[in-house]
């Protein structure tokens, strides 16, 4: 790993791709209040992405700003985890993804807030408050759906089962990084275990641990996501918006 540049890029790409997926829900949420909430969370993720990508561009020193990094890289150059690029699925899958993401981002940003790099510390301090809300929101929905109706329980359990294999990639050890993700795993495990228990859901057991996102080897989904996100920007090279 290439120091803080690579680290900021990973976090920024996680947030950007998560924002893109969450924003897909706009006008499609199960309740109007949820349309507002999901847009809000997407905006938080997008805000963090912009700060992180801007900083990554500065660390790289090659003159790339947030838009150059977001719009002019191909999928093999993206460094996000596979979890965030997975399609939204139904509302249960989206909430399972958000639970995992926020239970990972909260301790990560909290640790970042105390790190030696001032810029990363400032970003962490801002983003951790938002992550706390994302975790609260997703936990509540996982409990509602898990302990709601028979149908919602079935869907929520299926969603958790589907998403769980992608957890391992988030915590792959990286001792050289400003924050080693492996050190965050115990807090994540404790958080999600409580939520699943209260939601009457069975913690999935999985030996499959897909990975590769941090090296630019993604699922088939990311290229389509980027094609849509980048189409207009790329159609007008050099234009200002």
């Amino acid at each position: 790993m290439n120091g803080p540049f690579e680290f900021a890029l990973r976090l920024g790409d996680d947030a950007l791709i998560a924002a893109q997926r969450l924003a897909e829900w706009t006008t499609r949420a199960p309740e109007m209040e949820e349309d507002v909430a999901l847009a809000n969370i997407a905006l938080d993720q997008l805000g963090a992405a912009r700060l992180l990508l801007t900083y990554a561009g500065e660390l790289e020193g090659a003159g790339r700003d947030e838009d150059a990094l977001a719009y002019l890289r191909g999928d093999r150059e993206f460094r996000n985890c596979l979890l965030v690029e997975l399609p939204n699925g139904d509302f249960a899958v989206t909430m399972a993804k958000l639970l995992v993401l926020s239970a990972y981002q909260l301790p990560l940003y909290t640790a970042l807030a105390g790190c030696a790099d001032e810029r990363l510390a400032a970003i962490g301090a801002k983003a951790r408050k938002e992550s706390a809300y994302h975790l609260d929101h997703s936990s509540l929905w996982v409990k509602r759906l898990g302990d709601g109706t028979e149908e919602s329980h079935r869907r929520m359990q299926a969603a958790v089962d589907q998403v769980w294999p992608y957890v391992a990639e988030l915590f792959a050890p990286d001792p050289a990084a400003p924050i080693d993700p492996a050190t965050l795993r115990p807090e994540f495990d404790a958080t999600v275990a409580d939520v699943l228990a209260e939601a009457t859901l069975t913690p999935p057991e999985t030996s499959w641990a897909p990975a590769g996102g941090r090296d630019g080897v993604h699922t088939e989904h990311l290229s389509y996501l980027l094609a849509e996100m980048q189409v207009l920007h790329r159609a007008h090279p050099g234009a200002a918006w």
């Binding site: 950007l16 893109q20 924003a23 897909e24 706009t26 847009a39 997407a42 905006l43 997008l46 805000g47 992405a49 912009r50 990508l53 947030e66 838009d67 977001a70 719009y71 849509e228 996100m229 189409v231 207009l232 920007h233 007008h236 234009a239 918006w241």
Partner: peptide, 14 residues
């Protein structure tokens, strides 16, 4: 929203 041409415009539109 998904195709907004800059991250700033995406945030404003969202």
């Amino acid at each position: 929203i998904s195709r907004a041409p800059s991250l700033k415009r995406k945030a404003i539109l969202l």
